[in-house]
Each structure stands twice: as C-alpha cells, then as structure tokens.
Design a protein around this nucleic acid. Structure first.
Lengths: 199, 199
DNA sequence: GTCTATACACAGATAGAC
DNA sequence: GTCTATCTGTGTATAGAC
C-alpha cells in the first residue's frame, strides 16, 4: 500500500521537522526514522521542499481542530471561553516536546525565500485561522469581530513566540487575560466593567 | 587594526544572517561578503556558533535604542506614545529588507537546541526589553505595570510574527490599538479623561 | 515500490607559509 | 593577522537492479 508508506514518511518528517526545524533535519534522518530508504522517500516525494509542504499540509487540520476544542462550544460567556482557550494552550505548551507553531516556525526559517510553498501555506493557514476566530467572535455577539479577532490572533501568536523563547507558559495566561478584556470591551453591555475587572 | 576586520565580519554576518537565517548562510558566504578569507574569519571567531552569538550581541543595543526612540519622551499621554511606537514599527516593517526580530528568529531556528548561546542571548534580550517596557509604563502611572508591560510585549511579538508571515504591516497598527486600550484601562481615571479631552 | 550504491556539491573547520 | 590549499563529514538527489 502506497498510502501507508507515504504516511509513515510524513509522520517521521513531522516528528523531526517540528522538533529540530527544517534545514537542520536531513532527508536521510527522515528516511531512517520512517524505516525506509532514501530512494523510497524520493519515490513518494519529488524533493525535500515538497516533503516540507506535505508536512505542513498534514498539520493544518489537526491544529485548527485543537483550538476549536479549546475554545469549546457556544453557551458559556465568550470571555470565559477565550480565557479557557489560552489556558489550554498554556497547558499544551508544558509538554517537553512542544516547540511553538510549526507554521510560524517554517515561515520564520524560510523568511529569506518569500515564494517558498511552505511560506505560502503558512500564510494561508494563519489567514484561515484568523477568519475562524473572527467568526466565533461574531457569533458570540462581538462588535467589529474582524478587528477584535485580529487582536486576539496577535495575542495568540505573541504568546506562542514568547513561550518558546522563555519556556514560560504563563505568557499564554497573560495573553488570555488581555484577550478577554478586549473581547469584553467589544461586547454590548459589560464592556467597561470587564476591562477594569481584569486590570 | 583588528577591530576593523572583526567589525567587518560581524557586519557581513548581520546582513546575511538577518536576511536568510542562520543555517542557510555559510561561513564562506560571510567571509566573502566581509572581504576576508575563511581562515581570517576563523582567526577572529572560534566557530560559526560563536559568530552567531556575536551577531546577536551586536544587535542588542541598537534594537533597544530604536524602540526607545519610537516610544519617545515623557510628556505626551502614555497611550499616544504606545500607539506611536507601534505605528513606527509598522513603518519600519515596510522596508523590503525587514525580516522580523533577529532574536526571535534565532530562537525559533534553534528551538531544537535549548542550550545554544544564541537562544540564551535571545531570552535575555527579550527579558530586558520587557523589563524596560514595564518601567516606562510604571513611570507613566500605569497600575500593575509588570502585567500590562507583559501584555504589550506579547502584542509586539505577535504583530512582528504576523507581519512577517503576511507581509502586512497593518498588524502592528491593530496591535497598537489593543495595547493602548489595555494601557488606558490601567491608568487612573484622571489620566484617561485627559487623553480623551486632548483627542 | 523498494532496495544498494553512488554522484556531486558544499558544509564547517584546519595546516602551515608569510 | 591574513593568506592558499586542503581535510573530512554530510547534504540533496540519482542510477539501475529486483
């Protein structure tokens, strides 16, 4: 079955690329971890760049699903759900193998090659994620959901970067409080009180 | 003068490391750009890793000074100064050669090697920057300046990451508005009303 | 589709003359 | 302090058998 071999290779690429980065991981290492030879790998993927693109493509859906779970269902007050999402991220980042966002890291490592497929995929992933976030806020009754969604997105991204640099997951909690304050301010009734409560 | 040769090498390293990243730039390329041979480079620096560390060390002060300029002097209302800082960042990021924060990018690219000197330097730089930011907020009368400073720091970091991914500098403006809102909420009532009266 | 074996370029780092 | 020349490992990718 070609499917099995291909997915084994992508699984090995995911483990190594995410842990060590793109350029520092060799095709040999991926092939070895996947339990195939390099020649087999090149039968399934045209080049290392193609494998990088496949690695990110496989990460797209699980990443979005994870945040969807963290945000939870409609029902609770929106600021609480936002805080919960950031708290879950903080908990997730406690894991020793956590290394930040694979998409952002790929875009950063390939910042010198703006046309690279992986960079394009990262931008697309982030745009769709921001769009989803804005939609959730709009459903929750937030005024100007696009603008607030973008601010929450920025807080998410910044928290991930600083958690990676400092290995301190409290940044996600701090970001969650800020996000909840901004969201509360954009909700119809409780705006002023909620912001002051956080500060 | 040894100083001249050494600084020429660091200058070449800065240009290439910042533009293309760490691993994708060879020592040969840096030596060539500096106008020296590889052997001379290795006379001044023990290894490529040492050169990377020197590259970041040289970037530390100019980076902080730039933000200090952008925030401006005491006198204007603090939220206005915050907005101005983010606006200046947006303008700075318009330049074609802009590639985000060299410290964060180094930490991201070396995320697989937590003990690497460059990672340690990046964390130290970010910690001192956050400290400076909190100090400025405290001087401006912000309550709980440490917590708000951290939130502003997260917004800064997130805006830089997303500007790099999307090549859209409006993220810094959006982050600046969020930061100003959070700062305003942490100011005494009198200061907040003074801001509104001026604008 | 998967293997063994290998081509070819380039990486980081060093030897030793001057 | 700077040079020419080189060592040695590793990188991506390919040839051709089975």
């Amino acid at each position: 079955m070609e499917q099995t071999t291909r997915s084994k290779i992508i699984g090995a690429a995911d483990a190594l690329f995410y842990e060590h980065g793109l350029r520092s991981v060799s095709v040999d290492a991926i092939a070895e971890r996947a339990g195939v030879t390099k020649r087999t790998l090149y039968y399934h993927f045209e080049s290392k760049d193609a494998l990088i693109a496949a690695y990110l493509a496989a990460r797209d859906r699980p990443t979005v699903e994870r945040y969807r779970d963290w945000l939870g269902d409609d029902g609770r007050p929106l600021p609480d759900r936002i805080v919960a999402m950031f708290a879950a991220l903080a908990s997730f980042a406690e894991r020793p193998k956590w290394r930040g966002c694979g998409f952002t890291r790929a875009a950063v490592e390939l910042a010198g090659q703006p046309g690279h497929p992986a960079v394009v995929m990262a931008a697309d992933h982030k745009a769709r994620f921001e769009n989803w976030l804005a939609g959730e806020l709009a459903n929750g009754g937030v005024a100007d959901a696009a603008a607030v969604g973008r601010q929450v997105m920025i807080l998410l991204e910044g928290a991930i970067a600083l958690m990676l640099v400092h290995r301190d997951t409290s940044y996600a909690v701090a970001a969650g409080e800020a996000a909840a304050a901004l969201v509360s301010s954009a909700l119809p009734e409780t705006s002023t009180r909620a912001v002051e409560a956080v500060s």
